[in-house]
């Protein structure tokens, strides 16, 4: 899928990937790719500005942790992030429903 289309939904994708549990940048990218059946191939470098922004907005928290013997920055969904995810998910469902109605009317 085109990168500029995905870019507008990157935060929703990241928050959704973190819903399952904490993860570092690389594992988040993998989770998005795997859950989309390989369809969503992000420009991987665009993930970190998004993660840092989500952290500034207190939607995720992060800390250095040892993962498989290596020190990694691990991100976790905050309470505020969980609420934001639910709200953005609902907005997306409404959009998807409306879009389907329009496309079905062609």
């Amino acid at each position: 899928m085109r990168g500029d289309v995905l870019k507008n939904h990157l935060e929703l994708l990241v928050l959704t990937a973190l819903k399952a549990g904490p993860g570092h940048g690389y594992s988040i990218i993998r989770a998005i790719r795997d859950r989309s059946d390989g369809e969503f191939k992000l420009l991987e470098g665009s993930l970190y500005p998004a993660l840092h922004r989500l952290e500034r907005d207190s939607l995720v928290t992060s800390s250095w942790s040892n993962v498989a013997g290596r020190k990694r920055r691990v991100y976790e969904l905050s309470g505020k992030g969980r609420a934001a995810l639910e709200q953005r998910e609902r907005a997306w469902r409404r959009f998807e429903h409306a879009m389907n109605l329009v496309l079905a009317g062609q």
Binding site: L43, E44, G45, S46, Y48, P49, A50, H52, R56
Partner: peptide, 20 residues
């Protein structure tokens, strides 16, 4: 290549930083 051109990644990060 998969990570993205350094200039693009840096610009993306700098814009987010400038916005904040």
């Amino acid at each position: 290549t998969q990570f993205g051109a350094a200039a693009t990644v840096a610009a993306c990060f700098a814009e987010a930083t400038a916005s904040a």
